[in-house]
Design a protein around this nucleic acid. Structure first.
Lengths: 124, 124
DNA sequence: AAAGTTTGATTACAGGTGTAATCTTAAGTT
DNA sequence: AACTTAAGATTACACCTGTAATCAAACTTT
């Protein structure tokens, strides 16, 4: 699995919002939440390319970046990894931990029920 | 939140198995899964103490270590953090991702149902 | 054409991390 | 008491990360 740092992920996440995109578009998107210097973001883009998380095409002197994977694919792998490390690969203990500490809202419960429902339909 | 590295967490996790414990006991426990040098584990114990994740008492020339927090407490915080970063704080999308990629077993589903059930009872 | 601007490339640098080796010193052994 | 261990403390060192500044080249503007 490609290992991304926190900051690298946030840059990639800004690209996932809408791609392909240029560095300046990504910088623009990040400017709302982050106070990162433009240079910092460029560095992170370079590292993402080096790690194989992004590819780019040249357009004049600009690069037009595209993620090499989908967000869902990446977050799924990260989730598996996380759950493996902290909960021996089982997902229920994670949810259970949230429940016990009153971190679950009725909306969360409804959404979870729907996920279960859909899963069961899928199994026919 | 105390930030622990992967390796640090694994050492702490070995301590959580049964504590208080000495360095050599922890090293013994880790020897099954890891091929870490004894010195490496000692280094990690030192870093854990420095970060405030462990405390110790002296017993002759040995230290007897105790975690400064419970495993459930730590994993809950890590989970919140994880879910915040990747799923904007909502838990269902994580579970949904697993479901869509067929990572959920009937057992997982049953466990999740039980968590939901317990939660609902709790709300009376 | 010269000068300025903008883009990516290269360099910087401190603190964290994995992975130990070496040093000190107190405790155990003879 | 002298000698040997073994435990923790200190030091090492390369790679990763956050966070840019500087450099070089291409494009724009005058």
């Amino acid at each position: 699995m490609i290992e991304l740092s926190k900051a690298e992920f946030e840059v990639l996440d800004a690209l996932w919002l809408n791609y392909p995109a240029t560095a300046s578009q990504i910088i623009e998107r990040l400017s709302d939440d982050k106070q990162w210097h433009e240079k910092t973001i460029k560095t992170l883009l370079g590292r993402l390319v080096k790690k194989g998380a992004l590819s780019f095409e040249k357009d004049g002197r600009q690069y037009i970046y595209t993620p090499c994977m989908e967000r869902a694919e990446y977050t799924l792998k990260e989730s598996q990894n996380f759950i493996e490390r902290f909960f021996s690969g089982r997902i229920a203990p994670l949810v259970s931990g949230f429940a016990k500490s009153e971190q679950l809202s009725q909306q969360d419960i409804n959404e979870l029920k729907k996920v279960i429902d859909d899963w069961e339909k899928q199994q026919k």
